[in-house]
């Protein structure tokens, strides 16, 4: 299977954006793909902070997926909505 669109709900952005990702990509790569369409365009960067990815839920409480987990292993499908957000500094 090749690239397919997911819905990128990027932290603080006004729009939910369609971003194409691939089954073999890691969560860090997914975060970077989504960041490309939000940071420096509609959302300010937060240098030094790590981007994490989690499934979108009603109360924004889902834990993030491991950073090296692949799209395929995470079970992300066509038009799934995911949150991309800056991890709070430890």
């Amino acid at each position: 299977m090749s690239a397919f669109p997911i819905l990128s709900r990027f932290q603080q952005d006004a729009h939910i954006k369609t971003v194409e990702i691939e089954p073999g990509q890691t969560m860090d790569e997914v975060a970077a793909a989504c960041a490309f369409h939000s940071i420096g365009l509609h959302v300010a960067d937060k240098p030094g902070r790590t981007l994490r990815v989690r499934p979108t839920t009603e109360d924004d409480s889902a834990p993030p997926w491991p950073r090296d987990l692949t799209v395929e292993k995470a079970g992300i499908r066509f038009y799934d909505c995911i949150d991309i957000y800056f991890e709070e500094p430890q």
Partner: peptide, 12 residues
């Protein structure tokens, strides 16, 4: 789309 910034209101 929905309110951007800290309230982050956009949701599908």
């Amino acid at each position: 789309s929905h309110r951007p910034g800290p309230e982050w209101g956009a949701r599908a």
